[in-house]
Design a binder for these strands. Structure first.
Lengths: 329, 329
DNA sequence: TTGTATGCGTTATCAG
DNA sequence: CTGATAACGCATACAA
């Protein structure tokens, strides 16, 4: 087989520079090398346009400086933000990110885990909704928002605290009768605690509330019906709503506007995630903001320091509140 | 050096199965192998939990089945969409995507191109604003929205046609005095043609128009001043606006609302890109939609078929119009 | 400090 | 159709 596109090798550089192969390797890896040797090698590299072959290095060292990040997609702005910050955190540590889009598909998730193993990645970070995902034991594995077992660290924001925060905020802003709505009630993951926190605070405050959870496949219309069922004399019987995600909050706001309900005058709305228009403009709705950068940092430092087995199995990061025009401030 | 995490190798599988190394390789690669040998190998792979090492293969074959995709970030929803579709197009062809975020930084772009070469990727797709980017010759290279030279294929949507389409649409919808606004006038790339197309159609239609382009670093306030300068008796002297991007369209809409201008009653607004809320919900503004999937397909098929040097140096894909509530329909 | 030589896991060539 | 074996480019232990 003719060696086609493949450029010059270390041996070529060594020959060109009149030094030994090992010396070239040492220069490339920034080890201690005599000044004149170093210069000879560097100029030879320049002349030949040498780029070192990462496969050769990986094969030899069995380390790739790569972390696989499994995530449904990049279209959802929250995922996009996560990808951004995880990449930054990895880059800072001189690691590369191998991005894997599961598209919410279990088969793809499994394939990607295999691929990650083939690529001998140094660790895997995964955000998955797959209830039966089997996690490889021989490779550092960290999850976001899903607790699997004590041996698999889970990073999440303080969903329970966020739920409480939403309820308290609505109360402070004058709400006296509220509701929580979410979609996807089957899988119990960390975000499920948003409801628990909300309910807990409502009880503490003595604030009447209702909960409306839609099964995963259920039609969105059921939310609409829920809302119309709670209209009396053209007015909504709630004066505050907390939604499981910003996207749902936005969708519900659209519905309410069509029903003639004014936001935030008639009903105040709080979502969860902290999504901004175009990624960095105004918040789409008033929201409980997830500390995405901190989550990314925690994922990366955890997956990389896994050889210390003293990492906590659940890391919970504090959230904050931000106004986005759907509450009265 | 102790071989640490590294799992079983083909040699281990061969020993376990009682066959030769080459036979294992042939099974793994799906080549013709006797049925009983094949079964022995497959069950040995199962027993040992073998994963083939992609570095070994890459080293031997000098092919990685990987394309590098260089893009500023994933926070901008248009980029996020592009990433999504490029990945899908690659996956369909059994290629992997190595994603590189330039963060609009020229140094990073250069580093990533080097890294791509180290990784021996089979090609590079880049969306860059770097005016002096030097493009490697020894590797298939495709750009989005930037024409470098005839030897570097450029994929773009029909920006000129999109500009014309916007003008005609505004005219059809009753506008008689319009303006075009954009940011970043220094670099002449394909999107610059949006203005040219718009102007051309305005001239054809005999519709009076103004153009307002902001230099890259200039403060956004200048747009605000431009708009306030065009108020007469509390009314905007334009009844139609075309903006260089959806993000700018959205920003301008915010400004106009604060000024008491009603959209679309007083002024109709059209953006460019086709950004949707949360990636897949309603359009953020009325807009000229870029055919993102087709762009991604074109990038991938072009970068992979580069060995045929008969690819066109500029591929221009048709855009479409979509209403997003900022026009009267 | 520098040179030499070996092997990482794989594919491909060549005999059998 | 299968078995044996030689590279691929690199890092590193060891010798000089």
């Amino acid at each position: 087989m003719a060696k086609e596109r493949s450029g010059p090798t270390m041996a070529d550089v060594a020959r060109e520079a009149g030094v030994a192969l090992g010396t070239v390797s040492r220069v490339v890896n920034g080890e201690q090398v005599g000044e004149e040797y170093k210069n000879k090698v560097l100029s030879a590299i320049q002349r030949l346009g040498y780029h070192y072959n990462i496969s050769g290095r990986a094969l030899r060292t069995d380390r790739t400086n790569t972390i696989a990040f499994i995530i449904p997609n990049t279209i959802n702005p929250y995922f996009a933000l996560l990808v951004h910050h995880v990449n930054l955190a990895l880059e800072k540590r001189n690691y590369k990110m191998m991005l894997c889009f599961s598209e919410y598909d279990q088969g793809r998730e499994i394939e990607y885990i295999q691929m990650a193993q083939q690529n001998r990645v140094d660790g895997i970070i995964a955000l998955t909704y797959n209830p039966h995902l089997s996690i490889p034991e021989d490779i550092p594995f960290v999850t976001i928002d899903r607790f699997f077992s004590v041996s698999v660290p889970c990073i999440a924001s303080d969903n329970f605290g966020g739920g409480r925060m939403a309820a308290k905020k609505l109360y402070e802003l004058g709400c006296r009768r509220v509701a929580f709505m979410r979609v996807g009630s089957t899988l119990t993951n960390e975000p499920s605690k948003r409801k628990d926190g909300f309910v807990s605070a409502c009880v503490d405050l003595g604030m009447p509330f209702e909960v409306m959870a839609l099964e995963d496949g259920a039609p969105f219309d059921e939310f609409v019906r829920f809302l119309t069922d709670h209209m009396q004399n053209g007015r909504l019987t709630f004066d505050g709503l907390f939604l499981g995600t910003d996207m749902l909050a936005w969708q519900i706001c659209q519905v309410l506007k069509r029903m003639g309900v004014r936001i935030p005058e008639d009903v105040q709305v709080i979502g969860f995630d902290g999504i901004r228009m175009f990624g960095d403009q105004a918040y789409v709705t008033s929201t409980i903001v997830q500390p995405v950068q901190e989550i990314a940092e925690a994922c990366v430092s955890t997956v990389l320091s896994k050889h210390l087995s003293n990492v906590p199995s659940l890391i919970c990061l504090p959230v904050s509140y931000a106004s986005g025009g759907t509450t009265r401030e």
